[in-house]
């Protein structure tokens, strides 16, 4: 299950499938390259900016929570062909943690390719059953009295977490706040915090 290289037979199967589809005129190298470039462009900066803006602008926050897809479009992300985006708001009493126990549903349009661990059997099986133990493995300990709401992403939506704005960010600009938010914060395995070490995957 580790992130190992593909087997030789898998490389061969891909080459044969691509060749057969091209021979029949069903796909072209250009189309594949366009899709790849578009997948490569998607990254957590988009989601981070959506979060930062929500911390500053109440109207944006309301839009984000009401219609994540429209909010992403407003950020210049084409959501056509993407599943609808839902945004779940952390409060002083409830923290959200997103997992997909059945496969690997993930809001790729606004945070990019899912990391390997998100798709792993360990995360998928454990996050719903012992979320606090999984959070601890990410170094995340919730404040006393905060409940965990595990979000099993089972169907048509893709979910991102809108974390609480951390203390010590009063007066920060949108850019400063954006730089604070990581991919993992938007999955809910970590919480944004001022002064934490360089994020693992900004």
């Amino acid at each position: 299950m580790a992130n190992q290289p593909p087997r030789a037979e898998s490389l061969a199967l891909l080459a044969k499938l691509e060749a057969a589809l091209k021979r029949r005129g069903i796909v072209s190298d250009e189309e594949i390259e366009l899709k790849r470039a578009s997948a490569d462009r998607a990254n957590p900066m988009t989601g981070a900016r959506m979060v930062a803006r929500a911390w500053i602008d109440p109207e944006w926050r309301a839009l984000l929570l009401r219609d994540g897809t429209a909010a992403a479009e407003a950020m210049g992300i084409s959501m056509r062909g993407n599943p609808p985006l839902g945004v779940l708001e952390d409060t002083a009493g409830v923290h959200h943690l997103v997992v997909c126990t059945l496969c690997s549903c993930y809001p790729r349009a606004i945070i990019g390719y899912p990391p390997h661990w998100y798709k792993s059997a360990a995360y998928r099986s454990r996050a719903v059953r012992e979320p606090r133990a999984v959070l601890a493995e990410f170094g995340t300990v919730l404040p006393a009295g905060m409940q965990v709401r595990v979000v099993d992403s089972t169907a048509d939506f893709r979910w991102m977490v809108l974390p609480q704005r951390p203390a010590g960010t009063e007066g920060w600009t949108e850019d400063q706040l954006t730089a604070l938010v990581t991919r993992d914060d938007m999955v809910g395995v970590t919480l944004p915090r001022v002064g934490r070490r360089e994020s693992r995957a900004a």
Binding site: V128, E130, R132, Q147, V148, R149, V150, V151, D152, T154
Partner: peptide, 23 residues
């Protein structure tokens, strides 16, 4: 749909919940 976590697994922390998309 929102569920209390502890009854599902027979353990876990009171107040923790599961939020699931269901048809």
């Amino acid at each position: 749909v929102l569920f209390d976590q502890p009854p599902v697994w027979g353990d876990g922390e009171a107040g923790d919940t599961l939020l699931i998309e269901l048809f």
